[in-house]
């Protein structure tokens, strides 16, 4: 564990907590893309299925449980919570996110480290995470009013993967040259997608 990765995990955790706070405190999910939240839930389920088979560390297991349960809780709130679900702008959140799932799955079948169920699920989750923010970015560009908490949520989500890229650079120089090309490429695409958001976020 290095500082970049720990900072990345904390920033990621913080982004989820900010979103949970927004939804819980304001009982509203206006401006939040439910499709992005559903994609993140799929990302975590596909990536953390080794939760019960491989024990890496208490930290690793606890964080996996936190990410899976928080993303499921947010999707549940946006679908089932009587007050929150009313504030979901369904007609605005129109990105065809099924296309993203299908594309990530096809990519994972072709580009993976080993053609095994575990590795294909892992690659699928990495590719899907890289593009999962798209419905949310489209929603932000449509909606005039980006409320602070939603803006902060997206900001921290973009920052977390940038920290992970620093983590991969650090590990490259300290731990030898593992083939991380899947993580590298996806991480760069993921952080790149936020570039225009960061541009407007800081200009506003």
């Amino acid at each position: 564990m290095n500082a970049f990765r720990f900072l990345g995990d904390m920033t990621h955790l913080f982004s989820v907590l900010v979103l949970l706070l927004k939804i819980y405190a304001t009982k509203s999910c206006s401006g939040v893309s439910r499709k992005t939240q559903e994609l993140y839930m799929v990302v975590f389920l596909a990536r953390y299925m080794d939760l019960f088979t491989d024990y890496i560390s208490l930290y690793n297991s606890v964080m996996k449980v936190v990410f899976i349960t928080s993303s499921a809780a947010i999707v549940w709130c946006m679908r089932r919570h009587p007050q929150v679900r009313r504030t979901y702008d369904k007609e605005q959140d129109t990105f065809r996110h099924v296309v993203l799932v299908a594309a990530a799955f096809v990519l994972a079948l072709i580009f993976n480290e080993r053609f095994t169920f575990r590795e294909i699920c892992w690659a699928f989750s990495i590719y899907l995470e890289a593009v999962a923010i798209l419905p949310q970015l489209v929603l932000l560009q449509r909606g005039r009013n980006v409320d602070n908490l939603t803006g902060q949520y997206v900001f921290f989500l973009g920052a977390y993967r940038a920290f992970y890229i620093l983590n991969w650079i650090y590990r490259y120089f300290t731990e030898g040259h593992h083939s991380r090309w899947i993580s590298w490429l996806s991480g760069l695409v993921q952080t790149g997608l936020y570039a225009d958001f960061f541009y407007y976020y800081f200009l506003r």
Partner: peptide, 10 residues
């Protein structure tokens, strides 16, 4: 050698 990246990250 292209070793598979360890899956110890979140």
């Amino acid at each position: 050698e292209c070793l598979a990246a360890p899956k110890d990250e979140l």
